[in-house]
Amino acid sequence: MSAWTRRFAALCGASLMMLGSAAAQDKVSVAAISGYFAQGFGVSIVNGLNKAKDDFGIDLKLIDTGNRALDYEEQFANAAKDGQYDLIFVMGWELADALQKAAAAYPNQRFVFIDGVLDSDKIIYANFSEEQGSYLAGTLAGLMAEKGSAIAKMGDGKAIGFVGGRDIPVIRNFLKGYEAGSKDAAPDVRVDAVFAGTFDDPAKGSELTLALYEQGADVVFNVAGPTGEGVMQASAAADKYSIGVDIDMCATAPGNVVASMLKRGDVAVYTLVKEEVEGKKVTPGVRTFDLASGGVELKMCDDVAANIPAEIKDKVEAARKAVIDGTVKIGEAQ
């Protein structure tokens, strides 16, 4: 009996302490605004926020904007009006205009714009070094093309491909890293890059990818959002290789996806929330998430990794270390 009472007393004491500390340090409260919580990168953001919620007990509110531009400004005003959120995460370029207006109208509200940098200097920007992850993707693809038919499903075209969505700076930045990685690792391998001109056309993505395979490319890097679904499908149809982007895409075409270049939205939001919880207030400015901080990474797919010679894997790992310690510099976006 005495054991039970002691346990009960301990529990009561612990919960009292928890109550006390919560009251003392004021719970961190976080909101996220987006119209894309259910898609690829958005899922990653939601996972990161939920993990932060589990680990730190923050208050979390997800605000779905829907797709009507008319609503955005009111949504920001409703979220910012009471100042109840320490940080408001914002994802989606269509919100950029309304966000900058809200940042001007509510100067005390801290907004975090995910995956991009805008004009306003009142906002926190969570930016990703996609060129670093792409560098590793280029290294891997280049080395595979150099080996050629020694690897299953590869031809001897000595070429690799790249399918971009629209031709915009951020996608160019992926391409720059990819080309640099391939060139440094396998100078003889050609990089064929094409842009679909849209992020919403899987059929076009598939068509372009098949054309690249025809031209001799044996590995195609998909950087095309939903258009890229076509890239993955084409790699399964042609039984060639592809590299996924943003999230782990190994399962989209098992046996054909070599790796995925992950943009870890979850790592970015988790890191920022963690700093906030630890009392280090996040301040406006650009925060870059790179290979070193785990914001981007190249994740190999287990099923295909078995086909890849160990020396290639070692070289990719060496390239990763070289990028992290700064021996390899990939330069700024052109």
């Binding site: 909101a31 509110k61 605000i63 779905d64 609503d71 009111e74 949504q75 409703n78």
Partner: peptide, 9 residues
């Protein structure tokens, strides 16, 4: 429509 925006928050 407008009410639903506050509803969401």
């Amino acid at each position: 429509r407008n009410g639903s925006l506050l509803l969401e928050v």
